[in-house]
Amino acid sequence: MSLDQTIVASPPATVLQVRFHGWGTGLMLIAAWLLLIAATGIYRADFISHQTLLAVAFTMSIVGVLSIGQGLVAISGGFIDLSQPAGMITASLVVVRLSEAGMPLLVVIIGAILAGMAWGAFNACIIVFAKLNPVIVTLATNFIGLAALFLVFQLAEVPQRSEIYAFGRASFLGLPAIWWPMVALVLVVGFMLPRTRYGRRATAVGGNRMAARARGISLKATRFAVFTIAGGFVGFAAVLFAATSGPFNPGSGSAMQLNIIAGVILAGISLAGGRGNFWMLLLSVGFLSTIPTSLVFFGLSSDTQSIFQGLILVIAVAIDGLRARRGTP
């Protein structure tokens, strides 16, 4: 591959926009998170407990894995993947059917990831070949997918004596077993994205697609790969979801959507593409996952949770817009 030569040979007319975040976002997120914990802890001392930690870690796990997929789509200039709920429920159904057939855990996980990737590739086909905007394509495929799923099943659940059921309830070092793979994936993706050729290509396409194409990066191949890999993360999230959710119906995954998008934006992964540090996802998703538990301790109903989550998203998007307008990271 003569990518390096091309970069040297081409005139420096357009700057390839690849910027990575400083640590300002991280400090802000840590401060917000600590403030939330401290405020709740002062109001109700029993908030600081192992029980709270478990609740937060549980919420974090599935949202965290899905936000990696969402972040990959966003950083490569695909805006938002609105079809994650349909993709996750499809893969969860695969998990249920495979574990009902008595397959070992590894086969179940691989099956789910492949199902998620197939869903991502299906979206990518429409986006790349029909050249349609991903937001609308995924809006429509989510619509179609959920309706088709409702025709296929109403309620599903992994069998109680399966390995995956045990995995969903196991704990490791005092935290849920499902929390650890999420952390590992965020760390690995956050490490690889700015350091490998493919990660940099995806980021470059999101930053400035014309400049990226002038450097010989195939937009079609990159888009296809990004959506398929993001689908793989959705598939893995489905494993965690099916293992812990109990009986679920096709609509069960839709409530997470907002937290995922808010998590990605708060982490500083711009919806405009090309910028972001995936390690920040641990902080943003952790902060957002603490809010529901915290509100319960403040004695507020679960309805108020939506008000806070919604307003936080509005504020986060406004900050993102201001940042993009100023052009500073």
């Binding site: 939506s306 998203l313 986060a316 406004a318």
Partner: peptide, 15 residues
């Protein structure tokens, strides 16, 4: 603030 309209109004939807 120049916020992305789809994401900002999605937040308002939930709020």
């Amino acid at each position: 603030f120049g916020a992305e309209a789809i994401a900002a109004t999605l937040g308002m939807l939930v709020a």
